[in-house]
């Protein structure tokens, strides 16, 4: 539960194209780490490399090390399926399974891990996870309804409930609020602040106020030009990044003088 991730000299490739270059970062447990940067700078690719989701695309591979509490995630005998069971993910667009009820969506991951659970156990798990995602009171009377009938913000919290139901060590969030209105965004941000007591959270966001509001540390990704690999320009405590960054590029980006 809530583990530290150490990344050293990470290069990420799609085929022959080097998408991300030379990332060194240490992600602290029980905290929120935000990744910001312009579109195409590799921050999403980097996030997805943390639970090996980028391997969904053919030709994707990495060089370097990603170590979670001493366990090399890219070790020769490590199954990416196991990595993803320990490191959960929430996506940009809410994606509850449309053919499943709210109840079944929450326990979808648990059904994969151990097939036999007593009804009372799954009931408890569903309630606990939906409570954890601040969604229980809104959906407790319609758990058998399809998850796609909820509002966008509710769907995203349902996806968070689904991700935390399997008790992951780390929660990755790829622009979780970019498809949501400000009120739903606030609900998710409050939720993230609660969840960081139990999980290590890494969030990619285009919203710099959001990064400043929720995160302890912030990493700024940038790239020199189209076709160039993205790199981690600066990684510092969020307060420092937004008040007194070490790098000129960071300051230009957060103050809107970029490009």
């Amino acid at each position: 539960m809530a583990k530290r991730i150490e990344v050293s000299d990470l290069n990420i490739y799609y085929g022959n194209f080097r998408a991300v270059e030379g990332v060194n970062i240490s992600i602290e447990p029980r905290s929120i780490t935000a990744l910001i940067g312009p579109s195409g700078c590799g921050k999403s690719t980097f996030l997805r490399s943390l639970n090996r989701m980028h391997e969904v695309l053919p030709g994707a591979r990495v060089e370097g090390k990603v170590v979670m509490d001493g366990q090399d995630l890219y070790g020769a005998d490590v199954d990416p399926v196991d990595v993803r069971r320990q490191i959960g993910m929430v996506f940009q667009r809410p994606n509850p399974f449309p053919t499943m009820s709210i109840y079944d969506n929450v326990i979808a991951g648990n059904r994969l891990n151990n097939k036999r659970m007593k009804k009372s156990e799954t009931d408890d798990l569903v309630e606990k996870s939906l409570m954890g995602a601040n969604l229980w009171n809104e959906v407790k009377d319609r758990l058998d309804r399809p998850g796609s009938g909820l509002s966008g913000g509710q769907q995203q919290r349902l996806c968070i409930a689904r991700a935390i139901a399997v008790e992951p060590d780390v929660l990755l969030m790829d622009e979780p609020c970019s498809a949501l209105d400000p009120i739903s965004t606030l609900a998710i941000e409050d939720l993230m602040t609660e969840l960081k007591e139990r999980f290590t959270i890494v969030i990619v966001t285009h919203n710099m106020q959001q990064a400043a509001r929720v995160s302890e540390s912030t990493g700024f990704f940038n790239l020199n030009g189209v076709g160039q690999p993205g790199r981690l320009i600066e990684f510092n405590p969020t307060e420092k990044i937004f008040s007194n960054p070490d790098e000129k590029a960071t300051e230009d980006y957060i103050s809107g003088r970029f490009g």
């Binding site: 989701m53 993803r84 959960g88 993910m89 996506f91 667009r93 994606n95 399974f97 991951g109 994969l112």
Partner: peptide, 22 residues
């Protein structure tokens, strides 16, 4: 939809489980 296939994979589904879920 890739959206739902990725949702299944991110939960730690194998390829067959992903096919069954999504």
């Amino acid at each position: 939809p890739a959206l739902h296939r990725e949702a299944a994979l991110a939960l730690g589904a194998t390829r067959w489980e992903m096919i069954r879920m999504a």
